[in-house]
Design a protein around this nucleic acid. Sequence first.
DNA 1: AAGAGTATACAGTTTTTTCTGTACGAATTG
DNA 2: CAATTCGTACAGAAAAAACTGTATACTCTT
Lengths: 194, 194
Amino acid sequence: MDELTGIPEDQIRKIQSARQRVIESIGQNMDIYGVNLSIAYLYGHMFFRNHPVTLDDMGQTMGMSKTSISTGMRTLIDLKMVNKVWEKGARKDLYEVEGDWYRTLSDFFSIKWKKAAELNSAALKRSLTEMRKLLEQQKEQPEAEGSAELCQLLENDIAKMEEALGYYNWFHRLVEAFESGEIFKLVPKDKPEA
Amino acid sequence: MDELTGIPEDQIRKIQSARQRVIESIGQNMDIYGVNLSIAYLYGHMFFRNHPVTLDDMGQTMGMSKTSISTGMRTLIDLKMVNKVWEKGARKDLYEVEGDWYRTLSDFFSIKWKKAAELNSAALKRSLTEMRKLLEQQKEQPEAEGSAELCQLLENDIAKMEEALGYYNWFHRLVEAFESGEIFKLVPKDKPEA
DNA sequence: AAGAGTATACAGTTTTTTCTGTACGAATTG
DNA sequence: CAATTCGTACAGAAAAAACTGTATACTCTT
């Protein structure tokens, strides 16, 4: 807040209230990124800072313990929403928000969603293999008890899993379109004239 | 589980273990949609069912109270991941998973992300208007104390908020590309041959 | 319109998550 | 190399969320 020195009191209050509205909105809506309110507020406050901040700095600003700020900041760094900044001769670590929100979104998909899709794909592939083998075996002994029902069941499951795998394959390519920036060919950053 | 009657015990166990792997994977990765483990498991179990399920049915399957299943199911319905099914002369409500996962993803963005973007946009616009007015006023009295610093500050904030609004504008168009299916022009469902 | 069976609102309990203070290891200065 | 100062691991306290059982409102059949 040292950037506010020398500015009349009432002006400061107006600016802070305008900022506060945005910070609060960010806070209430950042749950889609899987972060809690405190971390979202931390991000919101950092958004308006024009210089990198320290843990102590933000702890003071938000009235929270340094430990909480530390873990919160780490969460934001893991999500690449915040970057660590190096400054010559600075004792404390410095942090600032990643200003390119398009990249933030892309990174988020890469970090969280892609990983989820890959894990699910792996599980699906293993179970699919198992079930296909079961189906093979069953087809070789069609006289066994309940064989028809079993085959029907297996075929249903297999079909579902194949469809799911198709989806995850598509999703993987979607994330790649974000990573490569190809997505901007379809949806350009600069709004085309209506 | 009535669909498993008449099938040998050991076959059932193999199928259930294959299913369980997938259910568990879904459960552990569905947090990106903002649902908890129980709800994710509920979804996972429903995924493998070939017929609509009832609340009691799933309560039994998952060993949970009907109340929990009810609220969990409602969450999934709100996210359009599960549909209510109407069946003639059925006393109980019936539910089944939305089988089109492309649509599920699209709906999720429409329901959660778009709303978040719109709320943030609204907050940004209001604060932006306020700050622009403050800047106007300030530029008319450049001799006031701390005026230069104040203008600098306001211009910084305004620039940031304008950039953020640009991003939300883009995001809005992105979600529309999902809603309209245009996204499949860029990333086709059927994998092009490599 | 009555009656049986259903889903859910609500309050209390249990479980999980978040937050804090202390303690410790790493890095930096003098 | 000693003395600071920093960031974080860890354990316990506080807060939030999830789950359950009961009670109520609603729907559908008859």
